[in-house]
Design a binder for these strands. Structure first.
Lengths: 336, 336
DNA sequence: ATGAAAGCGCTAACAT
DNA sequence: ATGTTAGCGCTTTCAT
């Protein structure tokens, strides 16, 4: 029942422990005859090296693992990030520990603590918490740390983010080019950095167009599809409703689509969403979005982490990944 | 730079190594004064127990990790499974190693080999390969092994699958109840067990309705959205086309939706898909599907694995998770 | 080319 | 209540 050890292999092959170690690690200074004998024993015992024991004694003490803190492994954005990082890690023979923290900052700390106990070589974090000073010791200890989607707060660390401000601005000018002058904003809680950035982009967009900021058509703190749908309904039923809306997040866009459909306004009120949604092109009208590129973000984050792991200790970098406006129909409805 | 060890803590606190171990592991027989001293030292050194070293010596040699082989962490089905398993694992303080194998059987073996080297306590596998005899030593060594979505081949192991046959049958009888007598089948490669099962359900459904099996309106081996779209287009443009189609997989359903839209037949040809798709309710018509329950599948798989880990060594079980037909519109278009 | 001894960070088993 | 010794499975170091 107990898995075979190197000792077992050595005994069966009639060689010393170190010789088996040499064969397993493909070191030189083993004669072909000896190697063959050892390999036969390995096969016979179905031996597999215990990486944990191996790494314990190794110089450098690397575990060939990295920890990945995501919002939720099952949401499309997180899992696209995950996949991109997995692919990079695989090239280096590195395994991933992942965990979902559901925007819960306690869970973020708990996860990172667990990763630390497992001696991960580095950390990629989509942060939930708003104060990362607790990671100072970690950082000082030399553990590479890359933040994704949102920057670290109160900690100077590498980050990879989308161009949220620029993307929102682009959405605004796109809608304006179709004649819209009253453009509603629907966003998430402003404690979330990306939500705040997108609102800032909206404001800048208004300013660039010489338009006033009208608080009545700006709604934030929308945390679910239903809440978003209700907010959109209210906005459009009020007196002097906006002729276009900018929905600053995935679920909010979906909520807005439901609301517009119910009000029968889907071909009348223009809509641009931030973040692409599945099947957006099959909807009627197809949904215009500012799309992020989670695969590129994950790739950039992994590249950065591995550069750090390879010894790069230049000052923290902040990579901003471009977003793309994909015009599909809903954002090209002209103002009436 | 080197992380603090238990030794360091013991030295700083002026106690023996074992006392620190007792405090860290919350064992009894430590006076409050001593405990406080040790805890202060832990805080000052920012010490964190090295789990790998700890587990190396522990009785039972458990690593508190499980390995999860998925088709692709970024696809919705896989990631929903992943999340369900993560939640169960978290309750037990178990971490997950995950990997995507993209339907590549070599990659499946490679991943499982890596997991084995890391001494995972158990394995949950969505299999890509068609012969699992290579896992016999693993199984004999007592490593719990649960297959999900598709059963093991040539290996008697626990499995959790959807009711693919029954679901397909239900789709057939649903379409028949709206008058359809010529129902096309569009499916994936039959090497994939689920695809074969769904075709079998289709055949049974036909038989139950007293309908003939017409090879001309059955297409299999459709491996992408585009290929599926083309197949649907061909089917519907041919002489004597089916009045309804059953698309036996996610991407095929999406391909069919594109094709129907392009042909202008979306309100004429009935469609039932296997596996739910995002935003199916916002499409026009909304898409009727036979929905799997990946969260339930993952939960059941995790429960099974942990039962095995807790010592249950009864014969392998094959849990079948029910599927649900969700009527939304496309499947209720009557035959003309 | 090969192996014996020491030790990685920790827990088990046994003192005291 | 606390400490000491051995040893988990492996690599390092140093010998032969």
């Amino acid at each position: 029942m107990r898995p075979a050890t190197m000792r077992d292999v050595a005994a069966l092959a009639g060689v010393g422990l170190k010789t088996v170690s040499r064969v397993v690690n493909r070191e030189s200074n083993v004669s072909n005859v000896t190697r063959a004998r050892v390999e036969a024993a390995i096969d016979r015992l179905d031996y597999r090296q215990d990486i944990n024991a191996s790494l314990l004694r190794r110089r450098g003490r690397k575990t060939a693992t990295i920890g990945l803190v995501l919002e939720d492994v099952s949401n499309p954005f997180s899992s696209a990030l995950h996949r991109a990082i997995e692919d990079r890690a695989r090239e280096r023979g590195v395994m991933l520990f992942t965990g979902s923290c559901d925007e819960d900052s306690d869970r973020e700390r708990e996860l990172i603590g667990t990763f630390r106990a497992r001696r991960v070589d580095g950390l990629v974090v989509v942060p939930a918490s708003s104060d990362h000073r607790y990671l100072i010791p970690e950082q000082r200890a030399g553990t590479p740390l890359v933040f994704v989607d949102r920057p670290a707060r109160f900690l100077n660390a590498d980050s990879v983010t989308s161009d949220n401000v620029g993307g929102a601005e682009r959405a605004l000018s796109h809608l304006a080019s179709f004649g819209h002058r009253r453009i509603g904003f629907l966003g998430d809680a402003l404690e979330i950095q990306t939500a705040a950035d997108r609102l800032q982009g909206y404001s800048r967009g208004l300013a660039a167009l010489g338009l006033d900021h009208e608080p009545a058509i700006v709604r934030t703190g929308l945390r679910s599809v239903d809440v978003a749908a209700r907010a959109v309904t209210e906005l459009l039923r009020a007196a002097n409703p906006p002729t276009a809306v900018f929905t600053a997040q995935n679920l909010i866009t979906i909520g807005a689509l439901h609301a517009l459909r119910e009000l029968g306004l889907e071909h009348t009120t223009a809509l641009v969403g931030f973040d692409d949604i599945e099947l957006a092109d099959l909807l009627e009208p197809a949904v215009t979005v500012v799309a992020q590129d989670p695969a590129a973000m994950g790739g950039a984050a992994a590249d950065m982490l591995f550069r750090r792991l390879d010894g790069d200790d230049s000052p923290p970098e902040h990579v901003v990944i471009d977003v793309e406006l994909i015009a599909r129909g809903s954002g090209e409805i002209p103002s009436t």
